[in-house]
Computed example of a mutant assay.
Amino acid sequence: MDLETVSADEFGAALTGIGLNILVRDVPAQVAFLEDIFQMEGHRVSADFAIMTYHGHIMQLHGDHTYSQNPLLGHLPETPPRGAGAEFRLYHTDPDAATERAKARGAYVLQEPADKPHGLRECFILCDNGYAWVASLPLPQFRNGEPS
């Protein structure tokens, strides 16, 4: 499927598994944040919508204004942060490199990279919408999927 030209109905019908759709105030700004810090790819980017890809996975961004008929819109907070409790884990992103890119961009690093007892090195970075993006990689002793 060509993500740059696929029609909305074809795209929707092709989605499977679990979907992730994030409501944001400014779609192009959120795309730039995700591309810059986490090396995601944005497709069909507009003020209303974007398709994001990350290591073969698809997620969607929608501008708040596109949800005018959706019951979720009334539950969004008027003032930030709106993402409290939402944590998006990106298991193929070096947390040290992501933190450097986030700082260079002026993004808020909630937690510096650290080795965690669950076998990952990870950091927490907040986007302007208040969502926590967690970049992580397995610790060296777990890189082959098994403790060494």
Rank of each mutant, 00 (worst) to 15 (best):
L72C: 09
I37C: 07
V24Y: 13
I51V: 14
G17F: 09
P95E: 01
H65I: 09
G42P: 03
I58E: 02
K116E: 11
M59P: 02
P147S: 09
V109T: 13
G63F: 12
E112Q: 11
H92K: 14
K103I: 09
T16F: 06
G19E: 05
R121V: 01
G12M: 02
N21D: 14
G119I: 05
Y131W: 05
K103N: 10
F33V: 06
P77K: 14
F11L: 12
L137A: 00
R25I: 02
D96G: 05
R121F: 00
L76N: 02
N129T: 03
G17E: 07
E112M: 10
A29N: 15
M1S: 08
H57L: 14
T5E: 10
L137F: 04
L20V: 12
R105V: 01
S46Q: 04
G145Y: 15
M52Q: 04
K116W: 07
G63T: 14
D94A: 00
E122H: 11
A14S: 13
E146V: 13
H55M: 13
V6M: 03
T79N: 12
A132K: 10
D128V: 09
Y54W: 07
R44M: 04
I51K: 08
Y91L: 15
H55I: 14
E41Q: 14
K103M: 10
L139V: 02
V134C: 13
E100C: 05
P81G: 00
L139Q: 05
H57G: 15
M52F: 03
R101L: 09
P140K: 03
E10F: 05
D94S: 00
Q30C: 05
K116Q: 12
Q39G: 06
E87Y: 11
G83A: 08
D48F: 00
P80S: 13
E122Y: 11
A47F: 03
A13K: 08
P140R: 02
K103W: 03
L90T: 13
S136W: 01
L90E: 14
A32V: 12
I51D: 07
M52L: 12
R121Q: 02
L110P: 02
Q69P: 00
R44H: 02
G119V: 05
E100Y: 01
P113Q: 01
F49K: 10
Y54F: 12
A114E: 07
I58P: 01
G106S: 08
A8W: 10
L34G: 00
T93M: 09
N129A: 06
P140N: 02
L23T: 10
A32N: 13
R105L: 05
Y67I: 03
L90H: 15
Q39W: 04
E35S: 04
